[in-house]
Every structure is written in structure tokens, then in C-alpha cells.
Design a binder for these strands. Structure first.
Lengths: 378, 378
DNA sequence: ACCGAAGATGTAACCGATTACGCGGCGAGA
DNA sequence: TCTCGCCGCGTAATCGGTTACATCTTCGGT
């Protein structure tokens, strides 16, 4: 099907049989009543034929289908939704679809939702809290089956309170809030959480640097209070400590993630030390920052990995095309999205009445080894 | 807040309307009638207060607002849509949100639509035609104000026919089809088109190579019949011809775009010529392919741009992080999305009744110069 | 020939909003 | 004091579907 076989006279040409069948003038929308009239049956029969969930005679079915085709009838999704049938919709709200991480998560949600017969809305607020709020409200109004909120945020008390309000509001409407890549705002909030282990990923990749012989490792990209960044720094610290290094070995520098922040921060750092860094390796908060840092180092004549080793975080597509290809931590962004949907659906099946529980899934990370790490010079 | 306790006797007790008044357990959704009951006014008043488009007394307004807050009432977007008010929705259908180009266009549509009070659904079919069809159908059912279809496609007769059917179907439902980055399927189809000048972009970047002294330029990345690729090859050919080179100078090789195709094709080519290429520059069909080609060349000991110059197409974010940074053709992907929305809305304002016209906008491209081009060796 | 079950279809009551229409109350002008 | 007009508000029709319930066949069993 879907083949539009049976070259029906296109909607433009559909003249044919009926009275005033030409869609050319009739500006009113074609309703189920029109179909019923043309087929000579009742609206109930039309509805049943179209839904296919009730026995109908072959004769009636044929007449209805014919009328539908003649009139080019398209059922009204909103009316159908109002009546309680039709496909459910789910929503995913991200900061921006430009970023590969968000895009991947959104893609995962989309795919899994589509596979389960839901249609999916992807919306973005560009970091604007007011817009985020408006989006959640809209999804509540649309009676979205659940809302996936993805990405980190600065976890201050005010924001946590807001999240709690979202969750309760959604729950009250029979819906659900799913947090993706960010922790729950509190223990009693009815949210579903799908996370990945930020701290462990950081621990592993820093351990990799340590076992390559590095002792002076710079962490690049601070974002105070940010829920995805703090654990990475914590993992960095724990790795250092576990290898017997004193706290004085910690070097945490540079504000912000993303390419330009990484670039600017590294330029500043290298300028301050006159091009002779006191570190032999860099752990960048994300791959974009790593790319920026590498660009800055190149400008100072520092080669990767001969002079300074570099590792990143995220395993963006770009990581493999840097020169040299970047060793980094893979986060299962796509799976994160799929899992969010699965979790929400499973939860809805388990307790259809009202969301009250909180569930949490943690997906694993792993470091992917490429060519940006070597043993330190000395 | 969102405390939702407030000892309200539960929605439904106010009017005592329904047969078998809801038992304590069945948490029915709170409707406008519940609000009216609690506020001691009629549903009309509630609606008017909430819409704010009709004079209401301060007393009534206060009571209604109070009841809304107490009951945590959220208006039903579907019912409102059915009644003909509420925000309109627009849809954008892409191949995948993973790809930077699609993501950018989607972002542009999203932003512009949001700025104009529409809510926006982003959906993707992974190149699956059946799914694309289903998506368009769904958007028709949702009565989307317009549907943006983005990206190239192989332009065979069958596909063109399909597009024509989409357009007519949407037009019949009072909606509109907007094509983004792809030509109209025919002159009489009611579609809106926003394109960028593929051919001119290719012409410009190849001219850049030519004026740097290159005479042996390889085009990499064929995709027969594909609407975005063919013009690039045409531009390449025209540039060569305009510089007085004979058709025999044309070298068009390699099937497919994307990183892996570029990598594989270049490996094959270099293997065939034993690492001694008969070209001094490469024009890759997109930046990803350029990245792959550069990786392959590196494996053969060929440096960019000292041994071979490289240019790409798209100006993906990745282009600036390749080593060396890639000279490429910028396409205004973000603007493409915004313009699609503007065009559709302008058109809808112009002829509210029924879409019948076809409009076309072409956005410009420009080449961005970076470090991947040098004068040829000899 | 009669009765009841099963099957197909029609009627009308929903779903939850918006809004045209009509009515009561109140202030102003005669 | 009696209208007239306006303002605020309630009643009910409407949007376009779904579906419980009633109705009308038709058919098999005895």
C-alpha cells in the first residue's frame, strides 16, 4: 500500500460522480458526515469501517472506501484525539537540535516512539527558561503521553523547584516527566530518570592517561553547578587520588564547554605560561572543547600527542576527524533517548492510573581509544 | 506549589452531573466545567476569562482564576484546536536529525515558527519512503498549517508523482507543502520552494581552485539523479569549461556522500594509481566526504594542502576543526528553515482560501576560505 | 412456524473546548 | 417613574470524531 496505486483521479481532478464533487469550490472541510452521506450509510458505519475494529459487511465497506477516495477524506486527528482514540503523542524538549548530543537523544526518542506508534514532537528552547516552561505547559495542554527533558542544567534550588512543579503538573494530568542525562530534583518527585555514568566515564579516561604515565593532567571546562560537568570533575579527582597523587596535583581550569570556550581558555593558559605548559595531558570537558584546545595548542606550536596528550568527552562524530583522532568517552546518546521511551511506556503500563513512583536507569559509558594520547615526553 | 491537595472534594462533586458520579478513586481529568462549578460561574465565563478576548467583571475573573489555580486546571489543547482556536502547528519532516544540515534547517523552522506562535513538530523518516508518506499523512490529519519537507532526493518520475500527490492532498486540506533544498516536482503543483544555489556554489569553489593554479581537479561523490548533487557536478563542469579546459579534464569519481563513502572512494582511487594521483585538488561533494578523503590521503602519506588541495561543501561545524581547516561552500541552512516558515506564512496571509500558486525563493551561497587550498606543486 | 442468537446498522450521547444568541439588571436620559 | 441601552453572563449549538445502546435483519434449531 502507500502506493497510491489505482491511479485515482488526483484530488484536483476528482470530478466524477457526486453532486458538486469537485473540490474546486467547496471550501468547507470534508467530514465524516459527508462521507456517510455519499456512501449512503451512517457516520457510525463509516467510523467503524475506518477503524476496522468492528465487523462490517463487505458491501458497506466497499461503499465507504469508495466515498473516502472520491472525497479525498482525511480524518481529523484532533477530533479523534478528543474522543480518546488515535495515536498518542510524546514530546522531547532540548536546548537545541544543533548540538550532536541533543540531536542524537532526540533521534533515539523519535525512533523508539515511532516504532511504538506514537508521534513525537521535538522542541527546543535556546537555554531560555521561560521558553522551557512554556513548552512544558504546551505539552501538558496537548496531553502528551510523556515529556522528555534532556540535558544538564545548573542545579540550583530554584531550578529544582521548577522541575518538581513540572513533574507534579504532568503527573496530575496523567502524564509523565522523563529526565534524560540529569538527576532527579528530589527523592519524592514523580519523575523517570535515564542517566549515564558521568563520573565513571571521567574516572576511566583519566585513569587511561595516568597509566600512560601522565602525572600532570589539566582538566579544562568548568561550569559551576552544572549537573553533567560536576561529576566529570569528581571522576577526574577520584582518579588522581586513587593513583596516589596529592590534591595539589589537581589542575581544574577554564570556564565553559564548547569549541570557543576551549579555544579561548587554552590560549589564555598557554599565554600565561609563555607556551611552556606545566601539564603533559589535557582532559577536556567535551569533544568540542578538546577541538578548540587542540587548535589553540597548534597555534603555540604544541603538537598532539607528541607534546601534549588530549582526551575529550562525548564521542561526537567530530572526534574521529580531528587530527589526530581523539581519544574520548562514549556516551550512549542514542540509546539514552530510546531508553527514555521504553522506561516511560513500561511505567505507564505498570501503573496506568497516576504517576507517583520514581524510576532510574543508568547507562554505561566506555572510553574509545584513538591517537591523541601518547606517553609523556620525559 | 502544585500542591494539588487543597482538600477540594474532588472534581465532579460540584455539579454532580454525570451518571454514577465519579467514585473517589477515578481521578477524572479536570475540565472547564469543573472550574466553572467551583468558581460558581458558567463555562462561558471561564472560557472568556481564560481567553481574555471579551469583557468580564473583575469579580468573576478573580473567582475563575482562583478556581483554576486550586484545581490546577490545564486547558485541553485538542478540544481547543477542534473548536478552531489555539495555537496552530507546523511540521518539518527530515531524513534524520543527526545530520548537521537537517538539524540546522529544523532549528531554523522551529525558531521562526515559535517566534510566530506556532508549535512545531520535527519528525524523521530514516530514508524510508513509506514512513515519509505516513508522516505526511499524519500531518494532514493533525491539520498542520503547513509541512516542510527538507533535503534532496533522487528525482525519479515516481517520486515526483508522490510529491505532487502530497502537495495536492495538503492543499485540499487547506494546508501547504514547503520544499526546502529541493526543486518543485512540476510547474503546476501547489508547493512553496526554498532553495539555495547549489550550482553557483560549486562553480565558485571550483573557480577558486582554478585560479589558485589547479588544472587537474577531482570531483568526489556521485549520487545519480540526486537533486542536491547533480547541480554541484554541473557547477564543477561549467567552471572547468569556462576556464578553457576540455571535457577530458573532468574527473568525476566515487559513489555516495558522507564520511565513509569519501574515505572508501579515496582509498580505492589512490590504490589504483599506486599512491601517485593524477590530480592536484579534490572537490568533495560534502564536508563529511572531504573529511573521509583527507583521512584516506593521510594514510597514503599525502599531505593537505601541500600535496593535494581539498575543498568541501556545506560548511558543517566540523570543517573548521579538520586539520587543516577546510575551505568549503557555506549553505545557509538555518536561514533556509526560517525562510520556509516566512514564505508559508506570507503565502497563507495572501491567499487564505486555498493554495494553488507556486512560489520559489533562492538563497545565496558563498565559499569560506580556510587553509586546505594551496597552489599546486608544479 | 416460532423463538432466540448473532450480526449489521442507525441514533444519539459523549469527549472538552468556543461562541452566537438571548436575557436580566442597572444607570442615564426624558 | 418609565424606558432605552449596554454590560455581564448563562444556555445551548457547534467543532468532528467514537461508541454504548437500540433496532432491524437474517438464520438455525426444534
Amino acid at each position: 500500500m502507500a502506493g497510491m496505486a489505482e491511479t485515482s483521479p488526483g484530488p484536483g481532478t476528482a470530478g466524477g460522480t457526486g453532486p458538486g464533487a469537485g473540490p474546486a469550490s467547496g471550501t468547507r472541510r470534508v467530514t465524516i458526515r459527508d462521507v456517510a452521506g455519499r456512501a449512503g450509510v451512517s457516520v457510525a458505519t463509516v467510523s467503524r469501517v475506518l477503524a476496522g475494529n468492528y465487523p462490517t459487511s463487505a458491501a458497506a465497506r466497499a461503499k465507504v472506501l469508495r466515498a473516502v477516495k472520491d472525497l479525498d477524506y482525511v480524518i481529523d486527528g484532533r477530533a479523534r484525539a478528543l474522543a480518546g482514540t488515535g495515536p498518542k503523542t510524546v514530546a522531547v524538549i532540548v536546548m537545541s537540535v544543533d548540538s550532536p548530543f541533543y540531536a542524537n537523544v532526540a533521534q533515539g526518542v523519535e525512533q523508539e516512539a515511532a516504532a511504538r506508534g506514537r508521534l513525537c514532537m521535538v522542541c527546543s528552547h535556546g537555554g531560555d527558561e521561560a521558553r522551557e516552561l512554556a513548552l512544558v505547559q504546551m505539552m501538558r495542554e496537548q496531553r502528551a503521553e510523556f515529556v522528555v527533558l534532556v540535558g544538564g542544567a545548573v542545579e540550583d534550588e530554584r531550578y529544582r523547584a521548577r522541575l518538581t512543579e513540572y513533574a507534579h503538573g504532568l503527573a496530575a494530568a496523567g502524564s509523565r516527566l522523563v529526565l534524560c542525562g540529569r538527576p532527579a530534583p528530589g527523592p519524592d518527585t514523580p519523575v523517570l530518570v535515564v542517566e549515564y555514568d558521568n563520573e565513571a566515564g571521567a574516572y576511566a579516561v583519566v585513569s587511561h592517561l595516568l597509566s600512560a604515565g601522565h602525572r600532570d593532567i589539566l582538566y579544562l571546562g568548568v561550569l559551576p553547578g552544572y549537573s553533567t560537568v560536576e561529576p566529570r570533575i569528581a571522576g577526574y579527582r577520584r582518579a588522581l587520588a586513587d593513583h596516589g597523587l596529592p590534591p595539589s596535583a589537581e589542575r581544574v581550569r577554564g570556564y565553559g564547554l564548547g569549541r570557543s570556550h576551549g579555544y579561548d581558555a587554552m590560549r589564555q593558559i598557554l599565554a600565561d605560561c609563555d607556551g611552556r605548559p606545566d601539564f603533559t595531558a589535557v582532559f577536556a570537558g567535551d569533544d568540542q572543547a578538546a577541538a578548540g584546545a587542540m587548535a589553540a595548542m597548534r597555534e603555540f606550536g604544541l603538537r598532539t600527542p607528541e607534546d601534549v596528550s588530549v582526551v575529550g568527552y562525548n564521542n561526537d562524530a567530530l572526534a574521529q576527524d580531528l587530527n589526530p583522532p581523539l581519544t574520548t568517552v562514549n556516551i550512549p546518546s542514542y540509546e539514552l533517548g530510546r531508553e527514555a521511551v521504553r522506561l516511560a511506556l513500561a511505567e505507564a503500563a505498570a501503573s496506568p492510573a497516576r504517576a507517583t513512583t520514581q524510576k532510574r536507569h543508568v547507562l554505561g559509558t566506555h572510553t574509545v581509544l584513538r591517537d591523541s594520547v601518547a606517553r609523556p615526553r620525559h
